[in-house]
Design a protein around this nucleic acid. Sequence first.
DNA 1: ACCTATTTGTTGTTTAGGACAACAAGTATC
DNA 2: GATACTTGTTGTCCTAAACAACAAATAGGT
Lengths: 400, 400
Amino acid sequence: MTTNSGAVSNRGQSSDSVRQHNLTTVLRLVHLNRKILRSQLTAITGLNRSTVLALISELEELGLVVESESQGSSGVGRPSLMVAPNENVVAFSVNPEIDATTVSVVTLSGQVIDRRRKLMGSHPSPEDAIRVSAEVISEMRKAFRPGTQIAGVGVSVPGQVRTSDGVIRYAPQLGWVESAFATALSQETGLNVFLGNDASLGCLAEARFGTAKNVNDLVFLFAGSGGIGGGVVSNGMTVGGAAGYAGELGHMKVSSSGRLDYSGLPGTLESLVRREDLLDFFKLYVATDEELAAEIRSSESSRAKRLIHDQLDSLAEGLSNLVNIFNPEVIVLAGFLTSLFEFDPDYLLSQVKKGSLAAAAERVVIRNGALGADLLVLGAAELPFDALISSPSSYSLKSA
Amino acid sequence: MTTNSGAVSNRGQSSDSVRQHNLTTVLRLVHLNRKILRSQLTAITGLNRSTVLALISELEELGLVVESESQGSSGVGRPSLMVAPNENVVAFSVNPEIDATTVSVVTLSGQVIDRRRKLMGSHPSPEDAIRVSAEVISEMRKAFRPGTQIAGVGVSVPGQVRTSDGVIRYAPQLGWVESAFATALSQETGLNVFLGNDASLGCLAEARFGTAKNVNDLVFLFAGSGGIGGGVVSNGMTVGGAAGYAGELGHMKVSSSGRLDYSGLPGTLESLVRREDLLDFFKLYVATDEELAAEIRSSESSRAKRLIHDQLDSLAEGLSNLVNIFNPEVIVLAGFLTSLFEFDPDYLLSQVKKGSLAAAAERVVIRNGALGADLLVLGAAELPFDALISSPSSYSLKSA
DNA sequence: ACCTATTTGTTGTTTAGGACAACAAGTATC
DNA sequence: GATACTTGTTGTCCTAAACAACAAATAGGT
């Protein structure tokens, strides 16, 4: 017998907060499931049928959900109505990269309905990215069908984001330092803007819509050309830290090697598991993850195999630590780590188990992420959607 | 601007759950503060005065709190009543060690009112510890004053505890494997029994009553003769992991050294920061933490200083990783790590900052724990108290 | 085709519990 | 001693969820 002390708020609850909580709970379920039967909502929430009816009616009046008759019968009895997010509710997703900025439109039901990628000079300033984002958003808004409601903008930042005020504290690859990105983009667009670290948002997306759906304890590791980022969900909540900088799993020291990572720290996971090393070996100049994956998959030379296994060993050392620290249910890999894993899944798992405590590792599963190119787009859009969902009746949606 | 997605339950709330939540909130505040004015309760909870009155009346009828007139005035206006936990509500704390088992009695107000340490043979079995604990508990119950109500038993385990069923999965120093400790001790005593990892409970205690009070993101590191354990609080919640094995921070690999820790893993924090190494150097056979601390404090030889700084360097490597992973507000040290830290606090902090990302480390504070010998006693007692507090009106207290 | 069992939607009523308002009680200041 | 201020206490109001009863829509059996 053991208890889990839940998150503590010290606030009391009145009937008003109950209503808010129930509206939030129903809307979240509709959002997460994309569509769900009313009968399932009553079953999951434990609320009375009549209460669920009232809640959905209110959400429908707010323009957040729509009901429709479900096709195909689900058994005896009067068929239940299907509840789905209102397709008119959308969010923008902004993804700044080193040479381009991508802006996408995501519906509350998780559909990516528009995406535009703007190439930029090789080292865009934050101001450049803000200007381009604002322009694209403005264009896109003009094309919206009438009645479209905008929840806000979510930005995935390849760097550290200060949660309290939406400032980009440091984005190494972009060279951005202390940029008040959220405030500035909010002024340009008149929309609510939310920032998040890219890997943390990827973690969020995989936990909500991807391979780690319904998993309460998970570790996410994401590796691209700019190094290794991570995200952690514990007790069903994102581990954010005091200021929002938590989850820098790539900068975990695992060896005494003097090799430096992109932030200048020696012997870290990021310094040992490197996309560049593989590209160099395969003599690929620039390559997509798919091209690299193909090379890895077809590797037969012992030199190639040794290199890949070395990388797997280093990855395993990092994952072992994370298993000891977090005892996750699932480890999710993304970016080129998926190719490494696929090359020899059993090897990676066995090495991880070897380097960690038997208890902590005994039920852990390693999986590749399921969201592919939509990972960061969906993750970033969750930020404004979260804000909307947590106060459905008072959140101010903006019209197109 | 950024949001923190809260913990998600999917359950709806009715007026009944509101009452439970409010009772829990008030009782928790009374417990955490040991005593608190009713006016402060209304201010903190945001509830109406009349509502707080009703809640406290119910808790008083349940025998959980008592009200008294506050001494000394606190300003203009009618003086507010003081609310305190009922001293008749207690929990047992059981702390098995390698050569003894200690049983303590803790009141809901956090007073340790009795403590008995039973020496045991050098390698007691779980059954031995259960039998001895049950005997001591039985004796102690006879001495209770009439009306005493028992919330249950909390056990601090120097090893891995499976949360779901209260089984000790593996306690290396004791040599215990897969022991259904909670079930057995519950049968012997007729009380609810809860288990927790010792370091995790120490973390909990420091976060609630010690140096990290009101801190929502903290990392706790505890080192004794049996190695290094840890605990983490993130978003105000203990990081427990999928099965309860999270927080094994001592087994984090930080170097390529082949030196093994007590669980056989190489190059880990525990293998490099060792109480034994210091004892050997100072030629102390067995020593209390105080004796070791005195030796460290008075070290003047350059060899001693080098050894201590080496240990500090290794400790810093581990802490740097934890800073990058958790971005904590506070790091709390306990056990002999306090002596290491006190030897050169600035050095440890600067080494931690050197090995971690500037952003993640910029506001971190390192502190020694404040609870000393009561650490595990208070921590373990929190387990039954948590169960009581989370359902005040339906929890079944046992009488003496 | 009709009847029954089953499930869900809908409507009207009840009820639990927090908010609110009004007043009493006790303290500090002038 | 008068006033202002804060808190305790009591009675009433109000919100929102539960409940009960009935209607609607389906599947399966005869």
